[in-house]
Computed example of a mutant assay.
Amino acid sequence: MASQSAEPATSAGFEYVFPAIRGIQAGREFYVSMCPLRLIPKIFLFDEDELAPEVRAQRILNKGRLPALTRYIVDNPDDYVFSALTASVDGDIRFESITDSGVGMRAGQVRISMAARFVINDGQHRRAAIEQALKENPDLGEETIAVVFFHDAGLARCQQMFADLNRHAVRPPRSIGVLYDHRDDLAAIVRLLAMRTPIFKGYVEMENSTLAQRSRKLFTLSSLYYATQSLLQGLEITKDQSQELAEAFWTAIDKQIPEWQQVRRRELLASDVRRDYLHSHGIALHALGRVGNSLLSTSLSPRSWTPTLKRLLTVDWSRTNTDWEGRALVGGRVSKSHHNLTLTVNYLRQHMNLEMSTEERRVEAAYQRGES
């Protein structure tokens, strides 16, 4: 029988041959191998979109995710990282070990009929992104990705594998994503703000995106990230200028919020401030960033916008202020929706005598009519 090293052919007499390690899970053999990226789009299939969910082995491909995944590979050819694909093989599969005994029994090569069908149980978005990336950079084709092969035991087993593989998947908190992201210039700026700026140093939760009730932190890294992102949006300045400007802005904000200063002087507990006031919550920081962006878009000089920020002293940030209900609060609970963020921005603009955008005026008018 002729064999090929993972080269496609239509003849049922040919085989794919993959170097592999054999393992056992739940009494079933599986094989861990490597596959060149150029072969991924050719041999690994995903179910057609028109099939009903009950006869598919996976979810429909979300094409909206592909551009970001594709750009990740293409823009980072020297340091991208993709985890293994998991695939079921519907067809003949045979393992040949290096030796008949000992450790060598686990290593060898797996032979799979070219007439077999490969169905991805986990990684269809990675597979589609690889296909797109190869069109832009064919040189990636000789690189490899790990693949875990299972022998197909029918549709029900494939569906159960998909459910099991995704059942316990947990997206990491956004804060730790910012902490560990060394490609994003904004993430680097925010990390420095959190670790070096006196108003934030020691008071930013660096890993989790929510704060425990008794936490001694005032802010989360993720909320500071989104707030600073809004602050700097659209400004054509360098990374160093962004760092200096962000630090100057948040330092100026700090002077308008006495409770932040009292926490640092240990006159108030951070947990009490979070419970009784809104200004350390993500929606407030984000709103302050949006308002700040309007000021910075007019002038980058702190001398120009610092006097305007002093008007924030007229804002009653306490949660007992009934003005917040329907804006930052819904039923007494903080709401982070885009709609509530806009209404919170509007409230700050009113206190600071700043004009609203066309969209902000529309949202405000609907709120005043009781339509929100």
Rank of each mutant, 00 (worst) to 15 (best):
E142M: 13
T210Y: 12
F18Y: 09
L218R: 06
L232F: 03
V204E: 00
I199G: 02
L37N: 00
P41K: 00
L85R: 02
A365R: 11
F14V: 15
Q368A: 11
V89W: 04
F82T: 10
T144K: 13
I40D: 00
P67H: 01
G23S: 09
M105K: 14
T314A: 15
K201P: 02
Y31C: 02
S297F: 11
T10G: 10
R369V: 04
P138C: 09
D272Y: 15
T99L: 11
I98P: 06
R369F: 04
Y277C: 12
Y31V: 02
E267Q: 07
G292F: 00
V89S: 07
P19L: 01
T320K: 14
I93K: 10
V147S: 05
L155W: 06
G91V: 07
R214L: 15
E131I: 06
R362F: 12
T342S: 15
R311M: 10
P307W: 07
M356R: 08
T344A: 04
M195P: 03
I253R: 01
A287H: 03
E143G: 07
R274E: 09
K336S: 12
A365F: 09
L269R: 08
Q132A: 11
V334Q: 04
K201V: 07
Y367P: 00
I176A: 05
D75C: 08
I93V: 13
E15L: 11
W305D: 04
S271K: 10
M356I: 00
E236Q: 14
S299C: 10
H125A: 07
L278V: 07
N76R: 14
D181L: 05
P198K: 09
V170I: 12
D75S: 14
G292E: 05
K217G: 05
T306A: 13
A128Q: 10
Q160K: 13
F219T: 04
F46T: 11
R183I: 09
N340I: 01
R349W: 00
P41L: 01
R275N: 14
H151G: 10
R59Q: 11
A270P: 03
F162I: 04
Q256T: 15
P67K: 03
S83M: 13
Q262A: 15
R319S: 01
D272K: 14
P77Y: 08
F95I: 06
T322A: 10
V103A: 15
E236M: 12
T86P: 03
P258M: 11
G202V: 03
S5R: 15
V55H: 06
